[in-house]
Design a protein around this nucleic acid. Structure first.
Lengths: 219, 219
DNA sequence: CTAATAGTGTCTCTGAGACACTATCTA
DNA sequence: TAGATAGTGTCTCAGAGACACTATTAG
């Protein structure tokens, strides 16, 4: 067969909603090129694993891997994207609920930290392009499927659900119309539980009916 | 940097509508593995070109490359997908109009030939999986964008347009409702020309208003 | 005038979106 | 009882889908 000098990596765009903001996990680069700049976490694919497995391996570093959504996005292959040599990167998007984020990604000082997508630092390589692509895909997935469940705790209020949509799609919805829609789509069910420790009327907690990602026209 | 033994290829799923059927271009393999079976055309990516460029290069072999739509689909990376060694393949989908297909893909005896997607031979490697994915994506793109223009001649009748949708989405539409919808979406315009050489009332010829791929909820 | 396809309008029903007040809990 | 958020129904308008006949051409 032919000779090639191409390395293969996976990049992981890891989204969560923290403090009512859509945030993405970034690492600080410790070496050149782009030393001290932030980057999307990535790693080389091993010879005997497929890319999805490599992306999961990477994801384990930062999260408690229960109930993670992982989806392949796009393959970035500009010959100049890494100044050191030819690297083709398969980008993935992960959605995780705040409760599944490991402590080390919490600290402000950390080299691995969440940033709100609305106030990002300058990113290394072509990672801005990758992130923009991921945000676009996330919006589509939110509108047309039930993936919202992966970014919420397993039991949630309808207000929380609405907030996820409003935050990610960057628009407001009428409370009554939103609930009517969710109700008709038959994607969530009531539990017998209610919020506790809140200083107002406690809301009912709901669960998604299906863990499977399904096509549902939500918006 | 790290040592890897991974080769990178592009696979091209080339669609067209021929004889009112959705068809895909397949080559006959001349060597093992899968000798004499049909496969999606593919090639290695050169060290200094991005994957899109590689896919275009491949496409030139079979088509007259004017007015081709080319879109990256998905990257297939199972370590066992090629029995000879580790090959990661970036799959692309191309849409071409029948008028842009080179003669050599026309002959029945050819080693490069179109097959209706409804009566496919057995495919080599994981190419059935890739093709299924491509068909799925094609359906989505037809429903939500104006890509239909790439599979039609530049001037076409509304009946032809409706046929493209019916063929690919595998369902019938009411003539009046279909035309109402297309009219309202404002995506095509009349020309002053009509069909010729037909044995019935000749239909008006239309053109797409925009060559750019745009989001339009067609169906 | 026959065969073949092009081309056109109306009605019904469903779903989207605008809109404001009452209910229930804690402190 | 004040403060805070949960929770609920109606009306209007636009778009989707069902449905049948006339128009125009070639031969």
């Amino acid at each position: 067969m032919i000779k090639q000098k191409i390395l293969v990596t996976v990049d992981n765009v890891i989204f969560s909603i923290i403090k009512d903001k859509l945030q993405v996990l970034l690492i600080k680069r410790l070496i050149d090129p782009y030393k001290n700049q932030r980057a999307i976490p990535w790693w080389f694919v091993y010879d005997n694993e497929d890319c999805q497995t490599a992306a999961y391996r990477e994801l384990e570093e930062e999260t408690n891997v229960k109930n993670v959504y992982l989806e392949q996005l796009y393959t970035f292959s500009d010959p100049k994207r890494d100044p050191r040599g030819r690297v083709v990167s398969i980008a993935y998007m992960a959605l995780i609920s705040r409760e599944n984020i490991l402590i080390k990604a919490w600290s402000d000082a950390a080299e691995v930290k969440f940033f709100p997508v609305k106030s990002l630092p300058k990113l290394a390589f072509d990672h801005k392009k990758i992130l923009d692509y991921a945000i676009q895909r996330l919006k589509w997935k939110m509108e047309y499927t039930n993936v919202a469940q992966y970014i919420l705790p397993s039991k949630f209020t309808l207000s929380q659900l609405q907030n996820v949509y409003e935050t990610i799609l960057n628009q407001k919805f009428d409370v009554r119309n939103f609930r009517k829609k969710i109700d008709k789509l038959w994607i969530v069910k009531e539990t017998w539980e209610k919020e506790i420790w809140v200083q107002n009327r406690p809301a009912k907690l709901y669960q998604f009916r299906s863990k499977k990602v399904e096509i549902v026209e939500i918006i």
